[in-house]
Amino acid sequence: MSAAASDARWLSAAARLASRARPASYPNPGVGCILIKDGVVVGRGWTAPGGRPHAECAALAEAGESARGAIAYVTLEPCAHRSERGPACSDLLVEAGVARVVAGVEDPDPRTAGDGFARLREAGIEAQLLPSPDATASLAGYLTRAHSARPHVTLKLAMSLDGCTAMADGTSQWITGKAARAHVHARRAQADAILVGGGTWRADKPRLDVRLPGLEDRSPQRVMLTRGVAPDGVKVINRPDQIASLDALYLYVEAGSNIAASLLGTDLVDRLELYRAPIVIGGGRGAIGDLGLANLADAHGRWTLVERRQLGSDSFEAYSRRR
């Protein structure tokens, strides 16, 4: 394996570690770090609940003296700013005596933004930015917040083969099977907030929680898009553009066709997750309302397939918005 391929492999592994931090690391991004010495993993870490300690700190603590001369693979550029909550990770890496640092994403935070790399290089440590799709994907919420001043939005739709999310009378429980529904709960567990419309709330009375053993405490903040009054414990927004005001990095949307169309039409959806059941309803309620497209060409070139899997008898596909 070439050195470049090896670097990319370890960054991908660090990105998988980063997923363990989400969403408990909020308001900090979930970061992953792996320390490699002589081809062996000597330390691993991911951002702790509440944001501290950072991934690098955790990995260095696990490695101990073995960190000296190691290569640190980290999904996000090591921070350069000191705070009351903890030291700068770039300083910790210098003190530990690592030989090299490879990061997958440059930190957009102006308190770091290249200064983390600079501090490492000033100390004689080789520091390299190696753009990594996996690292970038693992930081989607943080990067969307930094660049677009809003949460990263995932729109989830469960439908029949003919694109229906419910019977004509609104009956929708259950279109998909147990495996698909469990997968939805796992996806909820990685979100800071979950949004439904008032119509969905009144029709289905969803609990909007996580009901997987051991993950019940990962239930996200509940949000309703409505002009009415929400029940206790549910935050209300009145318009899609108020999504930016939500205190979240990741927003998971389970809504009806009108809200789905509104979010897609205003280009607020970053990831589209489709669950398809092997059934045909015919004459049911469609998954997405009118987007107001002027011509068919406008629909092309907007989405990229990033994941596909089988969940029992149902299929799952995830698409990322091309930006």
Rank of each mutant, 00 (worst) to 15 (best):
A230W: 00
S315H: 07
V306P: 04
G199V: 08
T171R: 01
Y252C: 01
R207Q: 12
R239E: 15
E95M: 09
A248E: 01
A18P: 00
R16C: 07
Y275C: 01
N258C: 05
A15D: 06
D241N: 12
R227E: 08
A103Q: 10
V41P: 15
T165Q: 13
H183E: 08
R85I: 05
D162N: 03
N258R: 06
P231T: 06
R321F: 11
K205G: 03
P240C: 11
L272W: 12
R145N: 09
P206C: 04
V42G: 07
A118L: 12
Q221V: 00
A127K: 13
G51M: 10
I237W: 10
R188A: 14
L76V: 01
H185D: 13
Q128F: 13
S6E: 12
T47K: 02
S2F: 02
P23A: 11
V98S: 02
A191W: 05
A5R: 14
D91E: 15
W10P: 03
N295G: 04
E126Y: 04
T304I: 13
G141R: 11
R227G: 12
V42K: 04
Y73M: 05
G282P: 01
R202K: 13
V236F: 07
S90W: 08
S132A: 06
E84V: 14
C89Q: 15
W10E: 06
L274R: 06
G233I: 14
A166Y: 07
R150I: 00
C57N: 06
R111F: 11
A203M: 06
A18I: 10
I279E: 08
